[in-house]
Amino acid sequence: MEKKTILECFNIFITFFKIGAFTIGGGYAMLPIIEKEIVQNKKWMEHNEILDTFAIIQSIPGIIAVNASVFIGFKRAGVKGAIFAALGVVIPSFTIILLVSHLLFSFKDNTYIQNAFAGVRAGVTALILVTAIKLAKKALKGFLSILIATTSFTLIVFFNVHPVVTILAGAIIGVIGYFLWYRHTYLKQKNM
């Protein structure tokens, strides 16, 4: 590797390491931090460019934070850049969870820890419900989307259907349903 590439990859690694180490709360919480770091501090991308990037990486499968880092790393320095970006964003949480898991294994039978976790499980139930309600309000518009959401919920909870099956079914229904809708409106326009 050229010296310039090595430096660039190191730079990418450090940038995403920092993002990975200091953002709490999962992928969605990371996006604003990535935006600030990449657009304002590093000036690697324009504001519009990063918004486009976020839209794309949320529309492909995978972990949001890893998708974002791989994409930006690739734009910056090709496949090598992508590798270093991904390593940077994953290594902090990997290390921290290894330490935490060690602690959890050894304090598993402590009553205080157990009670604290019992409380946290109830609290997190509420946190997830709040997220679910907010997303549903924002994204569930129209009959078909409400029907798909309710059906997938019912199948998973009451009929123990594997979530992968419901995702694939959703994709197929989406393509067929919205294609028919598109053809319908297209033909109507043509006849007018």
Partner: peptide
């Protein structure tokens, strides 16, 4: 776009199932 329009509601259903699980 169509695939995503089909998958997004499924993920919302999955988040509600996560509430039941928790």
């Amino acid at each position: 776009k169509w695939i995503l329009k089909g998958i997004r509601p499924v993920t919302i259903g999955m988040i509600f199932s996560a509430v039941i699980f928790f």
